[in-house]
Design a binder for these strands. Structure first.
Lengths: 195, 195
DNA sequence: TGTACATCAGTGAACGCGCGTTCACTGATGTAC
DNA sequence: TGTACATCAGTGAACGCGCGTTCACTGATGTAC
């Protein structure tokens, strides 16, 4: 072989990473394969020695998100506490840089229209995220209750991030982020220093 | 003129209504103009005697959503109470029929990538919805606090609806809707009969 | 060690297709005379 | 009242374009002898 061992795998990973960023920023339908491959330093023809179709790449991107979510939460390097996680999720930087952010906030509505395999992957990410939030909640109530609480918290932060991104007015957008943090902390029963 | 007075306006409204439904169901990029016009009982060429471009139709659709939101809330026929509104927003029927549902849950992420005018319209809908929720909250705290609370509630229900739609598993989806209702009611400080 | 061949990730031209958009046209009706 | 013309919402063929996809080809390297 003309390329060193592992070269193909490295390239594939680079394509997936590029796609993950561009999909989040411009939407799946908004990103062309030729453009994507160029951004990854390749020509478009080579795409099909890595993936069987664009949908196949979408699936790979979602699978990658599952893995990353699992790693991030499993290794507990999400900051340790739920409060940190919430504040981090709803910081202005996350709003302003969807390309490096949460796959839900960027692609939830679009992925609903994709293949069953893709949706299944998405469901898996949901499960991982909810379980992880649940595990960060104090164990003062039954697991089922904590899980419901976790779903509420995630809905709140994700909804707030999307709303903050959709809105055209910086003051309103910042206000929405703040409101999201206060609401999520409230649902997590974390008391803030402010009244 | 060969058509009765008001005929053009009626047709235009029919196109906007058809678009509003299809855009919510299949996304803006997922709907072709020829298809849309056929669904409205017309041929695609006639589109441009009503709108200058597809983007112009998107703008009209968002403007229509603003108007509808204003009407619905102003006339207080949203059910009267915030609890009714929350339960109605997160009912299974709303999850299963995006075409007749909330424009945010369907198009928030996609509209962020459209023209400034379109985003401005979207910002206006946000403002109307938040003010309306705020007006349904008990006036026991300052307006600024109630507005924050309103933003939190709306983030929660919208996020929950999107999550419920994205997920491939009915049980999980129902659980998310329930969790959304409980969380939103909690944020509204409405006590439920269940513990 | 040197030569001939096989491998295969990546190249770039070409494809069919559906999209948004344009445009010459139609034909039923209102208006002018 | 009857006739000629203007209007214009809607028609449907055609356009250019970018998309996802295909395919014959390249050329550096590993392998066989």
């Amino acid at each position: 072989m003309r390329y060193e061992k592992g070269h193909k795998e490295t390239t594939r990973r680079r394509i997936v990473e590029t796609a993950a960023a561009r999909f989040r920023k411009d939407g799946i339908e908004g990103v062309g394969l030729a453009d994507l491959m160029a951004e990854a330093g390749l020509t478009h023809g080579g795409f099909y020695s890595h993936f069987s179709s664009k949908e196949d790449l979408v699936r790979a991107t979602v699978a990658d998100a599952v893995e990353r979510a699992r790693d991030r939460f499993a290794s507990k390097n999400i900051g340790g506490s739920l409060e940190t996680w919430i504040r981090n999720y709803l910081r202005a930087g996350h709003r302003d840089h969807p390309e490096r952010g949460c796959i839900f906030a960027s692609l939830a509505s679009e992925l609903g229209r994709h293949s069953k395999t893709t949706k299944a992957g998405f469901t898996e990410v949901t499960d991982v995220v909810l379980s992880s939030i649940e595990s960060l909640l104090p164990a003062t109530e039954p697991s089922a209750e904590r899980r419901k609480r976790a779903a509420g918290i995630f809905s709140t932060v994700m909804g707030a991030l999307q709303l903050a991104r959709a809105v055209n007015d910086t003051a309103l957008s910042d206000e929405i982020l703040e409101a999201g943090i206060a609401s999520a902390l409230n649902l997590a029963r974390i008391k803030t220093t402010a009244s």
